[in-house]
Design a protein around this nucleic acid. Structure first.
Length: 554
RNA sequence: GCCCUUGUAGUUCAAUGGAUAGAACGAGGCUCUUCUAAGGCCUUGAUGUAGGUUCGAUUCCUACCAAGGGCACCA
């Protein structure tokens, strides 16, 4: 519609070049507005009036603005269109047929799944779904650090307290024990010289696999933590297509570096470094292979990227999602890669997000903070159950809904704001179910569902025969959904969808509160039911794009 | 010191260079013999400072102030 009006204005007024056609902030000022820099708006208005599009009801001049009001018919037709397209409404062709890999979450085996992982997961899953809705073929990838000092720390903790090696409990319990072992090991590494030495020793043994006992614990710990992650992904609604392990990237990365020593990399103090500032003054030098001959994360990242392009040969875009703190060194790595592989240069994208913060400072699993992603999910889940005591559900239903609502509360609190900024973490607020929240959206959806169920019982079907003269605010919002989706997709910003969903939910709740929708005495009831269907489709689709389930009841 | 982010109601967040800067939480009042009150309705309040570009700046540019992150063998 936007494009249609634009073309029409362009043609009638013979405007050259591009101009902006926007939605006025206030619906009172029309559905689309155009700021004219023309000398005589009145003449323009006359021309436009003469050749008016069928969808436009009214054109007004307000100062330098020309406002367009869409017709009653346009809105009822757009509602009809939503009903026809159902959950496919809002799809666009922006990335039609493009192969895109999105890497996100990246938790490390042997370490707890902390809140930062929850954040990356929520953002990555949402971006993946938004790209899919825009026509892309998305592969989800997860990159996990299965080697390194953190593993040695965890194994030290496990050896130090053998009770933590109990293999009898549930996967979650065993993974929790390993998390404790890691925290203990990490703490002692900083404070206890003897422990530090032993951990370094374990690290060497892990590297050359010389110790049978350690190998055994490693295998168990790896399997358990990976399985525990898998259980979380299930609740979170993520299914990865590819898993990349850090250990597999060392040789590939090293090879790339060694092949380019002298050309891109240089030796310095026994290490192999990349002086990125030679290519871009805003970048800096980083070590790729240490003086001890060990590849750093940078080198593994080179290997990872190469592997990604090998895994998906004709990939159009490889997206990596991490926290902001990774931004600068990823730039250095990307610069090195784009010199080695010029064909990758425009096919890599790094999206960064802020951190979850306590009021007191940065959260870190390294110091073994108590709040993990899992514990947060558990707490929120329990709070939802408490709220549901007055509802009449079977235990299975209750469990399912508690998970869906809990995940919604957490994900929404992450996705409602632009992803670059930090989230000031307030436990009370993140589990708030009121107002600007995920559960509010779900609640609005279930209310719509109740209305639709009642309509079915009373055998009133959605219909467009009798349309009220009044145009509901909700109608003026619903048709914008496709624009919101394509905006979110082109900017990689899920929060536009989150904000939009709140807007339509508020509008629907107001409609619901002030109108009786299902009524045999109301000749417009069928149309109102159609509108309710449209709201429910758009909300369900929008929630899906945020990675949130839409329960039928709650 | 250099580089990158970010400064908007008391608080947490919105606002493709456009109209009277939107919500939510908090505070106060009203509202369920009607489709789920996790709701609705009403009241209250903000663009860090100083310049610049523009018909028009929360948005772009410069400086300053403040917060966070990064800057050679950790990831």
């Amino acid at each position: 519609m936007e494009q249609k009006i634009k073309n029409w204005i362009k043609e009638i007024l013979k405007i050259e070049g591009d101009f902006v056609l926007a939605h006025p902030k206030d619906i009172k000022n029309g559905d689309y507005a155009f700021f004219s820099s023309l000398e005589n708006e009145k003449e323009a208005l006359e021309k436009l009036e003469k050749n008016k599009l069928a969808e436009i009801e009214k054109i007004e001049i307000a100062g330098k603005f020309i406002n367009f009001f869409l017709s009653r018919e346009f809105f009822s037709q757009s509602i009809e269109e939503i009903l026809n397209e159902g959950n496919g409404y809002g799809k666009n062709e922006l990335l039609s047929g493009k192969k895109i890999m999105v890497e996100y979450t990246d938790p490390n085996p042997f370490k707890p799944f902390h809140i930062g992982h929850l954040m990356t997961n929520a953002i990555g899953e949402s971006i993946a779904r938004i790209l899919e809705h825009s026509g892309a073929l998305v592969a989800r990838a997860n990159y996990q650090g299965d080697v390194g000092l953190h593993v040695a720390k965890a194994i030290y903790g496990l050896l130090d307290n053998e009770k933590l090696q109990n293999k009898a409990g549930s996967i979650a319990l065993q993974a929790g024990n390993i998390g404790h072992a890691y925290s203990r090991g990490a703490e002692l590494y900083e404070t206890d010289e003897k422990a530090k030495k032993e951990i370094d020793e374990i690290n060497k043994k892990l590297y050359d696999k010389s110790d049978e006992k350690i190998n055994e614990i490693y295998k168990w710990g790896f399997d358990v933590t990976m399985e525990a992650f898998e259980d979380l992904y299930k609740i979170l609604g993520t299914k990865f297509d590819f898993y990349f392990l850090e250990s597999a990237m060392t040789d590939i990365g090293k090879e790339i570096v060694q092949a380019n020593i002298g050309k891109i990399f240089e030796k310095s103090d026994g290490a192999v470094i990349f002086k990125a500032e030679k290519f871009d003054p805003k970048l800096h030098t980083r070590v790729f292979i240490t003086s001890q001959g060990l590849p750093t994360y940078e080198t593994k990242e080179l290997g990872l990227t190469k592997e990604k392009f090998k895994t998906e040969p004709n990939m159009d875009l490889s997206i990596t999602i991490t926290a902001n703190e990774q931004m600068d060194y990823m730039r250095v790595v990307a610069k090195a890669l784009s010199i080695i592989h010029p064909d990758f240069e425009n096919r890599m994208k790094h999206i960064t997000h802020g951190m979850m913060r306590f009021v007191g400072g940065k959260m870190s699993s390294r110091k073994g903070n108590v709040i993990t992603g899992e514990s947060l999910m558990g707490d929120v889940h329990d709070m939802v159950l408490e709220k549901m005591t007055d509802r009449n559900f079977s235990p299975e239903e209750q469990e399912k809904i508690a998970n869906e609502v809990g995940v919604a509360a957490i994900k929404y609190s992450i996705l409602k704001q632009s992803i670059g900024g930090d989230i000031i973490y307030d436990f009370e607020k993140s589990i708030s179910f009121e107002g600007d929240s995920g559960p509010y959206l779900q609640y609005s959806y279930t209310r719509a569902n109740s209305v639709l169920e009642k309509a079915q019982k009373e055998n009133i079907l959605p219909d467009f025969e009798k349309v009220p003269e009044e145009i509901f605010e909700l109608e003026k919002l619903l048709y914008k959904f496709p624009e919101i989706v394509s905006r979110s997709a082109s900017l990689y910003e899920p929060h536009h969808i989150a904000n939009y969903l709140i807007e339509i939910a508020r509008s629907f709740n107001s409609f619901y509160g002030n109108t009786v929708i299902v009524s045999k005495d109301d000749q417009y009831s069928s149309y109102k039911i159609a509108l309710t269907y449209a709201f429910s489709f758009v909300t369900k689709t929008g929630l899906h794009l945020l990675g949130i389930e839409a329960p039928r009841k709650m």
